[in-house]
Design a protein around this nucleic acid. Structure first.
Lengths: 257, 257
DNA sequence: ACAAAAGTGTTACTTTTACACCCATGA
DNA sequence: TCATGGGTGTAAAAGTAACACTTTTGT
């Protein structure tokens, strides 16, 4: 079985290849059918789910490691990726977790094996365009799947906490940064953008006020094109003015003081 | 020489005691004479300065490690401490740095010694009440000193980048969080608080507007007491309503959306 | 023709900004 | 008594919030 082979390989070469004690975990968020989705991997023996994560090569920047994990899972490159927190509690449970799993794999490891050591994990979140993602096969997990943010399964270890922290961070950043590029398709309607905001904030916004405000940021271009095939009046399509969008990402809105 | 002894000890027991590849660095900020100050340690052979940093014990939460570093340097406990970024580039220069220094110490280490490996560092910032700090002797540095944020020396490695990132983070957080507790004495004037804001933001604020806004947050109590011995009209003293202050820390101001 | 989302403006209210005078104190 | 920072209010401007009707489209 490929998975088993993969694990054996990882276990034997990992100590040599990877930074010890450190991992990355990615909260990969996509937007689909007006709902925010997160990509999770199923544990190989239990019906619990984990964030896609991985280790860091000894000469690899941590950001690059997170990007690599992302690429491995989604096939996407150059997506929006940002570290948001480090989870550095000594998690005792991880140890028992691994031992139990490896036993079921028919693999024995020494008690001081690197995989059993404590890991500090760097949390990254990524915003991806749902429609562009092809879930790639992966050897370490049985299955990967998008989950609605409002309807989540049981999580492995503290991964629920990591996800919650990512969304909390995103919610705060919404107040001084634009969002949407990488989460929405190239062309989108203002209502779609508003739905994204509403989903992240988990509250309703007034349509006209939302439009006025978002337009005042000057990061949008209204196209001479309307969305076709929708059951009602055709809305205008918009796209981001990527230069101004990136400007806004750097400078931020709402100085406050 | 105590420093040398300390280093030998650290080098020999470190691999056993500490998480490999990971360190913490603390940006310790204090406020004094209306200026924001940062605590730096002098390198033992060169006239360059470093952030106080340290390693993480194998069973120690990363936050606790940062707190410990802080305590070792300032004698303070229970201060405001927050992780703000991870610096995870493979920094090649560190290696040559250590080799050169240890040579001067008359210490030889193997090429694969743990101290020569790549370290990912977790950046923490701390806000401390300047007047309460007693700079404690420390064996690894020749000298420690408060530096004005606007007048800084040459830094070791990428520590300048870490400091800049800490201040940038602080500046952003000022827009949705209160600040001042732990940086100001128990009783302070509104002007002192305003000076703190002005220093962090690096710009001037209107006195009346500042007061109106800060009072509207309802985190302050005006005391029936005035500051004495100042060369002009005695200003009222204020203190934080710590319950409301902490509430505000959790909930945040300026929702924006 | 009907149901449903899209487009659009105005008014009241709140918040922010800009600005100036008198007062209290120590030197 | 003088110099200096402290205390205080208001008016104009900007921004935010609340709200409703007409248009367009697919069915």
């Amino acid at each position: 079985m490929a998975m088993n082979e993969y694990i054996r390989q990882l276990l034997s070469s990992g100590e040599h290849d990877f930074l010890p004690s450190l991992s990355v975990d990615c909260v990969i968020l996509g937007f689909h059918e007006n709902q925010l989705k997160v990509l999770l991997l199923k544990h190989r023996y239990m019906d619990i789910w984990a964030l896609p994560g991985g280790f860091i090569y000894k000469d690899e920047p941590t950001d690059a490691a997170a990007m690599r994990v992302l690429r491995e899972r989604t096939g996407l490159n150059e997506i929006f990726l940002r570290q948001f927190y480090i989870f550095g509690e000594p998690e005792r449970s991880q140890r028992e977790f691994h031992i139990r799993d490896l036993e079921k794999d028919g693999i024995n490891v020494n008690d001081d094996h690197w995989i059993l050591q404590r890991f500090v994990t760097i949390g990254y979140y990524a915003l991806v365009e749902f429609s562009k993602v092809n879930l790639l096969p992966y050897t370490i997990a049985e299955k990967s799947m998008w989950w609605d943010i409002h309807d989540l399964p049981e999580f492995m270890l503290d991964h629920r906490k990591i996800l919650d922290k990512a969304i909390e961070t995103l919610r705060i950043q919404l107040n001084y940064q634009p969002i949407g590029y990488n989460l929405l398709p190239e062309k989108f309607t203002l209502t779609e953008l508003q739905n994204l905001y509403e989903t992240i904030l988990d509250k309703n916004l007034d349509r006209r006020n939302f439009q006025r405000k978002i337009i005042s940021y000057q990061i949008l271009r209204r196209l001479n094109e309307k969305k076709k095939g929708v059951p009602h009046k055709s809305p205008y399509l918009h796209s981001f003015d990527i230069e101004k969008y990136n400007d806004a990402l750097n400078k931020g809105f709402n100085a406050g003081w």
